[in-house]
Design a protein around this nucleic acid. Sequence first.
RNA 1: GGCGGCGUAGCCAAGUGGUAAGGCCGGAGUCUGCAAAACUCCUAUGCGUCGGUUCAAUUCCGACCGCCGCCUCCA
Length: 486
Amino acid sequence: MALKIYNSLTRQLEEFVPLHEGEVLMYSCGPTVYDYFHIGNARTFLISDIVRRYLEYKGYAVTLVQNLTDIDDKIINRANEQGIDTSRLAQKYVDAYFEDSSRLGIRAADVHPRATEHIAEIIALIQTLIDKQAAYEIDGDVYYRVNHFAEYGKLSHRKPEDLLAGARVEIDERKEDARDFDLWKKSKAEEPWWDSPWGKGRPGWHIECSAMAMKHLGETIDIHAGGHDLLFPHHENEIAQSEVATGKTFARYWLHVAFLQIDGRRMGKSESNFIFVHDAVEQYAPEAIRHFLISAQYRHPLDYNPTSLSESSSAVRRLSNCIDALGPYRDVEEDTSAELNDADAASLRDGLDTMRQNFESTMDDDFNTAGALGAIFKFVGEVNQFLAATGDQSSDVGRSVLSQAYNSLVEVCGVLGIYAEEEGASDEHAALTEALMTLILEVRQDARQRKDWATADKIRDQLDALNVELQDSRTGTTWRIIKGGR
RNA sequence: GGCGGCGUAGCCAAGUGGUAAGGCCGGAGUCUGCAAAACUCCUAUGCGUCGGUUCAAUUCCGACCGCCGCCUCCA
């Protein structure tokens, strides 16, 4: 089964073949650290994370680089407002980025380069562009000469005249061409600066990604991902800078994530209609937020609203209930023989095979996470049905298939990050909690035996208030902690 | 003006030239002391509108309507 990726460059679904067999070089545009990031930003970061995980699932060795833009106008303005250093402000939000993204289950990239730590590389790259006549200096500012690059516009599919016709930018009269953009910005008073051949200044926005991608991944990378808003001008400019400097293809597959909307409009910082991940994570379980963010294919807009989030919470709970119910079978030895002497078990294993096939074929189709969820939940229904029918009476074969089901579901959900295994705060506390719960449930069981329903229900209700849910069954009472409340 | 996206059941959302995955919500049951969880059944002759191609279109083509985005910092 071949993975296909929609390449913004060609506007087509293309079979994915990495530059080096078995390895994937991937670059994802990260945050500008002047504030917390919102759920819209999270969608892109999450998709990068899932693309990476799925490629690993398929056996590729993936190197993921995600930049942190830690110097730019917004950072300078925000730092000035707060009367602190730009570096201090940036560090605060770098820390916040890692905290919030890890709470969302987004794994850190292999490298998180920062613009301010790559000034030398940036300067060298600009110098190369000047040497090649692709850039020019005017009074301490350096601009990229767009006319030098005949293919300018190939990513955004724009013609030069279109770019000028729609230009709403204030045109700097000193530039040779209105489309030329900053590579190096001369510092104004009170602004942070670095020394360069053109005087004190700081890098323009686009150049850092070219310099850092090349430094950490090489001159040609496989996948370059980012939000759809970066397609133009950011990514277009990255191509222009990089390809003129090296004479090589910069990125082979360009992947752009559609916007998250809210009330039918784009969620954006400048729209001030955003919801910080920082806050969302207080209200909803990370798995629920992830489920929501991947409930539509990444190239389709998705609308944020509380209803969708609570739908995702319910869906994720259903999934979690199922996998937890399979937990007891996780260590049963798997019987992988082709012939199963138990018809129900055989049918469940067919369902499992189908689930895996559909998961892969749908993910191979440009990371169609919505379709993948469909495959997973269909199988969840089959597992529940099997468990309801056989329960503890399962045959050895049945138990073996349940074990396979558990491991497959955990693996597949791991790619999407929609199931979290129970993890206690610490072993010590987990053991204590376990012991206390056993005690409480014994007391309640005694009450139930006396038909003292008032006491039994009081215990259940009070535990429920603590997000501990009890479930009585013929074989006893089980409990679980409801993550993220309800 | 240029370029692009979206419009599928009450809500979210896959999908296919041959007759609509999955989730949520709702209703009726089973189980249970009551719940919860789970299971069973029910919930789109229909996929924005109008035409066209075809034996057959939601799926292809054309026109139109509505909503959104990029073209400026923004994931």
